[in-house]
């Protein structure tokens, strides 16, 4: 501060660099907005007076069953999240508060999934799904992710911080284990549920490889897979329409992110530290 000059100059340059990088980082998205809201002939001509239009969105919406894809993604994401909450809560409670033989081994086996994620095992899981008759179903897309090691781990860490006395007190009052879980542990773990929920939603909204493998019809395909088919060069759709479709696909998540930015960033942070 006292030496003023050079220090302030360096600071100024750094600020400018940070801003420049931010603009650069946002550029692809900004470009997509440009292309999507202008007629195709302006896709690569940046003219401030270019007329605005919503036609590209209309065309994208007509050329592919995006409404159905939205519904599929929505059902997929919510069913995975609901199942994850239930399964992970129960398992985390077992690991946090119960003594049983083989607990440590079981926990190590659970953590294995952090390394070997379902997308690595697409070949074998596809076989399993075809034996179960679940190929091309929404349940088939979601099932491998429902018991999530990450969720179990996060909730176990949180449950362990709940004072044992609270648990005991509730037991003395005559609550069953499940009632204790529901009335004591779950409410106290709310921040963890929110953080995990946001991470899970963004993960599965964006997930691609496994859904691509396991789906083959419009009635099950999530947005990402639908978008990949739509955007394929063979389909011969022009840039502006692809940009519009891309924005459509990311819109719900992007809007949610912009509205709850703090919450998103903090959730990812929180989930990462644990």
């Amino acid at each position: 501060m006292k030496s003023g000059g050079p220090q302030a100059l360096v600071q100024g340059i750094e600020n400018a660099a940070a801003l420049l990088l931010a603009v650069l980082w946002l550029a692809p998205l900004l470009y997509a907005f440009w292309a999507a809201f202008h007629p195709p002939e302006y896709a690569i001509r940046f003219d401030l007076l270019a007329p605005l239009t919503l036609e590209n969105f209309g065309e994208a919406w007509e050329q592919a069953p995006f409404a159905r894809y939205f519904l599929n993604t929505f059902m997929l994401v919510t069913s995975i999240l609901a199942a994850q909450f239930v399964l992970c809560t129960l398992a985390a409670y077992a690991f946090a508060r119960f003594e049983f033989p083989g607990r440590n081994v079981a926990f190590a086996l659970v953590l294995m999934q952090l390394m070997i994620m379902p997308e690595v095992l697409i070949v074998e899981n596809y076989r399993t799904m075809s034996h179960l008759g679940l190929v091309d179903t929404i349940l088939g897309i979601g099932l491998p992710y429902m018991a999530s090691a990450f969720g179990i781990f996060l909730l176990r860490q949180t449950f362990k911080t709940v004072p044992k006395e609270l648990d005991d007190a509730a037991r003395v009052e005559g609550c069953s284990h499940l009632q204790v879980l529901w009335k004591v542990y779950v409410p106290l773990a709310r921040p963890t549920y929110i953080a995990y929920g946001l991470v899970s939603i963004s993960y599965h909204w964006n997930n691609f490889l496994w859904p691509l493998v396991i789906t083959n019809s419009v009635t099950t395909r999530p947005l990402t897979v639908g978008l990949a088919i739509f955007g394929a060069p063979e389909s011969g759709v022009d840039w502006s329409v692809i940009s519009a479709a891309t924005l459509l696909a990311v819109a719900p998540l992007l809007i949610a992110f912009l509205l709850f930015q703090r919450q998103f960033v903090q959730s990812f942070m929180y989930a990462g530290i644990k």
Binding site: L21, A22, V23, W25, L26, P28, L29, Y31, A32, A35, S202, W205, N206, F208, L223, T224, V225, L227, A228, G231, W239, I242, S243, T246, A249, V250, L253, L254, F257, L258, Q261, F264, V265, F268
Partner: peptide
């Protein structure tokens, strides 16, 4: 927000945009 935005977008969607680049 700018730095973090690519994280919340699906890879498939952003690859579409980059393809054009």
């Amino acid at each position: 927000m700018s730095y973090f935005t690519p994280t919340v977008l699906p890879m498939i969607a952003v690859a579409n945009i980059w393809l054009f680049f």
